[in-house]
Each structure stands twice: as C-alpha cells, then as structure tokens.
Design a protein around this nucleic acid. Structure first.
Lengths: 346, 346
DNA sequence: TTGTAGGCGTTATCAT
DNA sequence: ATGATAACGCCTACAA
C-alpha cells in the first residue's frame, strides 16, 4: 500500500469531515447525499476531505436515522437445480453493486404452509426496502400478499399473473417456443413430444402455448398423449421421457420446457441406447450452463436471465428512490440456439 | 391471519416492552441478549411481553450502538461452474439463519490485481464481522492479507495453506483420490490419466498426491505424460481429455480433479464416439449435481461441501461471539460413489 | 446557501 | 438484580 494511504487509525465520522473542511455536518451530509443547495466550491472542498480521510458513511447510523436500509432481498425457490437461480443471483447482485445496495437472500422450500410467515420474518429482520421475486415465487399468493400487506415493493421475474402495481419482467416465452417447435417441424419432425414445465411457473403455460400454436400453424394435429407434465427438474424430465419413449408410436423429437428437463430426456434416451440426435431430437429452454455441457449439446432457447434479473433489481431500486420507472418494461427477446441435439429427420 | 395476530400498527420498540413489563429498558435489553443478572421471574415476564407485542429488535440501532452487525460475508470466486458455490452458499446460509446472522455476498473474478481493494471495500461497506472463504479464495494472499490487516476473522474452506490463527475446514482429499484411483486399478486399469485441478486450489495438489500414492502402492509407474493441468472447469476438462485421448497410447481411464472437468472429459469422449465406460472409464470428484445428471452418471467422490460450509460459518460465528472454538476441526470424511461411468476393464 | 437541535432504537457505563 | 443516562453516527426539521 502506498504511503499516505494507510487505513485510518480510528473510524472517521461526519464530524471529522466537517471539521477538516470547515463546514457543518449538515453540509457534509448534503454533499454525501448529493443534495442541492451546496455551493460548487464548498462541495469540492468537502469531497476532497472525504477522499483524504477515506470517509465512509456509517450504514447503520444512516439506516437508523433515515429509515433506509439500502438493502433489497431476493426471495427464491431453493430448487434442486441451481442453474436458473445462479443466473438470477448474478444479475441482481450486479444491479445492487452498481447502486450501492446490499442483497439479502431468502431461499424458500416450496410448497410450504408457513411461507407467508417466513417471508414476513425475512422482510422484517432483514429490513429490506424491496424484494426481487424470480419465478415461480412471484406467483405465490402468500408471498405477494405478505409483501403488499407490509407495503414492500417488489419486482417479479416472469410471473404468470403480473401485478400492475409492481414491476414485472417478462420475456417472449411463447414466441420462442413457437419458433423452436417450428424449427423441428422444418427439420421434418411430425411427431413431437412436449414436457411441460412446473405448473406453478407462469412460463410453463406460455411455452406450451407456443408449442401448440406452432403445431397448428404447420397443420399438425395436437395429440394430448404426446404431452407430459414435468416440474422443471432433471428427474421429471427423465420420467416424462421414459413415458413418451414407451409409447407405441414414440415421438421423434421432444421439446422440454427447460434445459434441466431436457438433460433428463437426454439421460433417459442414452440410457436406453437411443442415439441423440440420430433417433431422437431433444431441445430445451433457457440456455443455462448445463445445456452446452451435455453431449450432445442442447438446442435450446437463450433467455437473458441474468439481464432480466439485473433489470428487475435496477428498476426496483430506482423506484425505491422515487425515480420514475419509465415506460413499462418491454419483454426481453429470446433466441433459438441450434446445437447438436437436434438434426433433420432422415 | 388469525385475529389478535395482526402486524403491529407501528414499530414496537424496547421502550414499549419495558413499559408493558414494568421494567426498565436495560432489563429488556438483558433479556433479549441473554445476559445474566435478571431474575427468572422478571425474565419470563419480559419474554411474555415480547411475544405478545411481537417485538423485534431494530438491527440498525443494535449495530450502531453495539458495534456488531450480526452479518458475515461470503467472498467467493464467481466461477463459470456454480455447482460448488451453490453448495457452499446453502451451507453458509443455513448456519447464518440458525444463529440470527445475515450473509452478504462478494463474488470475485480471479485473477484480478485489484482484489485486495475490492475485499477491503466489501468488508468496510458491508460491515461484516467475519468472512467465509471457500476455496480457492482462502489461498489468495491479497484477500487474507487484507482481512488480517482489518482484523476481520475468517474461516477458510479447503485452503492449501491453513492459517493457524483462523478457522480452517478440510476434508480428506488425498485419501479419497487414493481410494478412487485404487478402485480403478482394481478394475484392471493400468494406464490411468489424470487431470489436475486449478493450481490455486489447495485441493488440487492433495488429490493429485492421492493419485500418485495409489499408483505407487499398486506398483504402477507414474507417467507425467498422462497428466494434464486443468482449471476445475468444463472447458479445461474437455481440452485435457482431447490431449490425453490423442496420445499414441491413450489411457483406459481418466481421473479428473472434479466433476466439472469430468463432464468435459465425457463430452470429448462422446464427441469422438468413444463409448464410456466401454472404452474409457471416467471419474470425477465432488459429487455435485452435474455428476448424476450426465449419461453415464459419474463415479466420483462425495465431499460434504454443504456441511463443510455450514461448519465454517458456524464456527466463525461462534468465535465472533467469544465462544471457545473447541478442538481444531477434524477433516471431513469423503466417500467414493460408484456409478456407471466406470467399469471393469474387459 | 448553511447551520443547530432533536431524535432514530439500541447497548454500555455507572449508579443504586 | 435493576435502572438512569450517555453514547453510537447520521438525517430531518427548522432556523438563520
């Protein structure tokens, strides 16, 4: 460490800064909080002293006095598969860092009767100003209800039922699955299975709708027998795939509602010695890490999860600071990513 | 919500409790903090009022006054593969919840010249009392140096160089890889490749040592040509596997330093049309989620990552509260998990 | 544009 | 065993 930049021996407070700068603490406070009514020259003087003394406002005092914790929470489902959550976490963390906020975590094990109480406790003890709710938590009424009760604003990522009073972040799930399914049809597939996502996730229904619309557009009959209910996890993908592959007339391609389930499909297919994509094409959704780490790597839909989470947290923080949320957020674009798990039907 | 349990209209403070209980605030404080010198009867009375009023101490005030934030930090390498970190996160979070602490996150992008400064800022702004350092951060001198400078205690998980003044959590890496390699030899493998882990991780050297010791014990010559340097991520596993498989005399089994690299090996092998385990046995280390989600599922070593992280955080918090850290923590046991990615050599 | 006084809810000190 | 009172460091209201 260069000389002259040692850590200060004792905590430097607003009084120290005021004294060194020859102003009152209020003026320092104004400068620190970027308030008006400070002469430019004074401001610079104070800023200089702050740098010189390495003054950092005491967050606890700030909170106690100003009732602002500069902390938001992330209430998420602590699912088996952490791929989605990891992306959300990174996004939210990024936004917090950029804005000088802290992020506190509240993992949930759904379903759980005491969810409302847990969220209430979390919000109280963690004293968060706002909360980010990645799917599916944004659709859990006990959670959203508790937060509205407590007047804690939140931002929901990919909710099924967007609450107009809150921030909602979406992406084009329906369109993307429509394209993805259309692509399979273009490859010659006529018998395409579908594994639905977790029923509590809003995205599940949207993606499924895209699948159906694609079938319709291409003049293919919708066959309920080719559809299975999954839960966005590896195991349900595996089980559903087993059922579909046991059909007398098994599908030549399977669309899974997300990558983790597609991984399960791949596992089951390979376990049976089926060649993918030779005998079965498999596609997923999300383009999480796992998608490109399987063999064959998955054709999937890239959803900008991290960016969505970053936006959710950013808009939330801006709103907490009274900064007008511009126009309602446009849904994010998704992109079909073609990899080796799918090929033209031969 | 049952009647009589509505959320209190306004914040209830220590004064409210004191008044209702007919005692002074200091007594309430004593009860809340489990201090001595309170008559049992008084204590119970106060406890009753606290429950009745649903009193929750204000954390900001507590911190401002008592200089204790009841917050610890998790400084981790924000690696591509989040499998290890997810387990650590869950473990640390569990310990924090159990002890009424909050956990703040500080992802690091290594290597990075400004690491020391970043950790310093984090510790200051997040005002953490202590920090958990999962591998490899516990071996980054800029980090540990900064923390020691600031007198912030920490707990390192799986460090190469345990610092005697701090808490260190280890597991039996060497023994486990010794067993794992021995198992492969028992299966008839004589030409066993090895992909080393990230050189900055302490575990890498230990695991490698176990491999060598196993070879020696079974009278197999150690061949440097069968060893590659990886970085604990998928890509380095893939690349290293490609090199090993291109050898004129390629190995019949590959030991990867962790599961993510083993996944890369699997990917590369399958890409080349090699049958696993028919033509190549592959084993990993960690038993993270990905291990059982590949086909074939990985033979690996189960390391109790979550438990180790939970222990690290728990011991750290106890130490912060002056509770004598009992005997130095014993290394955790590991367990070889045999799955379909390895079979007897035919 | 700048400064002063009071309070935020708790813990610490020192009496009693 | 219990209590009165002073910090803790900042922000808000109001005054100058």
């Amino acid at each position: 460490m260069p000389p002259g930049r040692e850590a200060p021996r004792r905590k430097v407070t607003i009084f120290d800064v005021a004294e060194h700068a020859g102003v009152s603490i209020k003026t320092v406070s104004r400068v620190v909080n970027n308030e008006a009514n400070v002469r430019d020259k004074t401001r610079e003087k104070v800023l200089g002293v702050i740098r010189e003394l390495q003054y950092k406002p005491n967050a606890a005092a700030r909170e106690l006095s100003g009732r602002r914790s500069r902390t938001i929470g992330l209430v998420y489902e602590n699912a088996e598969e952490f791929n989605y959550t990891a992306a959300v976490l990174n996004g939210a963390l990024g936004a917090c860092e950029a804005r000088g906020y802290s992020l506190l975590l509240c993992p949930l094990n759904l379903p759980n009767p005491a969810i409302g109480e847990r969220v209430r406790d979390f919000a109280t003890q963690a004293r968060v100003e706002g909360i980010v709710l990645p799917a599916p938590v944004g659709d859990v009424a006990e959670v959203t209800g508790a937060l509205q009760d407590m007047r804690i604003p939140f931002a929901a990522i990919a909710p099924r039922d967007p609450l107009p009073a809150e921030i909602n972040i979406a992406c084009k799930d329906e369109e993307a699955t429509f394209s993805l399914t259309g692509y399979l049809v273009d490859q010659g597939h006529r018998c395409i299975g579908y594994i639905r996502g977790h029923p509590e996730h809003g995205a599940s229904a949207k993606r499924f709708a895209g699948y159906r619309r694609a079938l319709k557009k291409h003049g293919l009959a919708f066959a309920p027998g080719l559809v299975r209910q999954g839960y966005f996890d590896f195991d349900s993908g595996k089980t559903s795939a087993a059922e579909l592959l046991d059909l007398p007339d098994p599908p030549t391609a399977i669309v899974a509602g997300n990558d983790d389930m597609a991984a399960g499909v791949l596992y089951e297919a390979r376990k049976r010695g089926l060649s993918v994509p030779g005998q079965l094409s498999v596609v997923g959704f999300d383009d999480t890490r796992i998608a490109s780490r399987m063999w064959p790597p998955l054709t999937t839909v890239r959803q900008p999860i991290m960016e969505m989470a970053e936006t959710a947290a950013r808009l939330l923080i801006d709103r907490l600071n009274g900064e007008a949320a511009e126009a309602p957020q446009e849904p994010f674009e998704c992109e079909v990513v073609i990899r080796e798990s799918s090929v033209p039907l031969t």
